[in-house]
Nucleic acid binder design. Sequence first.
DNA 1: AAAGCGTGGAA
DNA 2: TTTCCAAGCTT
Length: 368
Amino acid sequence: MNNNEIKALQSDFLNWYDQNKRPLPWRENQEPYYVWLSEIMLQQTQVQTVMPYFERFIQALPTLADLAQVPDDTLMKLWEGLGYYSRARNLKRAAQQIMTDYHGTFPQTAAELEQIIGIGPYTAGAIASIAFGEAVPAVDGNAYRVFSRLFDDTTDISKSSARQHFANEIAPLVPKERPGDFNQAVMDLGSSICTTKDPACLLCPLQPYCQAYAQGKQLERPVKTKKIKKKREQYLALVIHDEQGRVLLQERPAKGVLSGLYTYPLINEANLLSESQKVITSTQIAAFFKAQYELTLQQVQLLPVKPVTHIFTHLHWQLTLYTASIDANANLAYFPGRFFTTAAIAAQGLPTLQKKLQARFAAYQKNV
DNA sequence: AAAGCGTGGAA
DNA sequence: TTTCCAAGCTT
């Protein structure tokens, strides 16, 4: 593209943005803390989902210093249900990092921002351009889609190398004036006009020079070859009460799904079933708990309710609920978890999987 | 380089 | 039901 064509493209994006930008809470000012927080929350997450979380978060933690000092349980309660929980933990670590290493002031370039935990190439570009006016691209999934169509680019976005390829293509197009608005225009256009399945090309300001549209190939761009296959796994979920009505919850291991979060104790059925065996018995479950945790369960019973299904990015879980009882004075030295009162459970930041299990159990109790 | 990491919604 | 998608980062 020559300079005039680039100028025209920039104007088309910015004019469209001026007419169509959405009024979002994090667009009310360019406060780096808010821009950063919104960008982290928006990773792999839709605007509509993020909105209430963002409002609650800045209400509870209005400044970077507040975030750096927030207790972990408060933090997880604020993030509860949003998913990708390491984002929240990294957010706090990053806040502490900025407080100590940068005296509480955000670094202002993409290159420096990318050194902060949780900030990758996209987020660094977004913050640098939106909050600090640096003319760098913010290459997210929208940018892949918009520019692969505009240039009829067949780069496979499944590959790790695609991001740098598009960054190189887009960098010369980002205007020195209003780089943040340009990047947000790309994203807003990508999420409203240049959509994946049903792009509104007739409403698109770039349609006159969109190379994919010219060839009717907009639905074939971007090229994406990789498909994720979900692994199916069966679990038992144990609702274990003590005499005081407390419930035993287990802390998930530091590695793996839902790490560090609390759920009912979960047992992978594969850990109980031998090759020829098909039915799991209550005795077997009790024996497993004894062997693993030195804990004695009583009255282990299969709950006559529909199993809970939960789908992660790479996993498809089906969980069968059981109830059991345990002595309130049981020694939990070998068990990664603790007893929770009803109030303590409500105050805990829990993953949606656990919420689903609780709801299923509550529905059962109501009908008994 | 590719796999792992949540959740909700749409088709 | 199944699949895919949505403002990615870390290891």
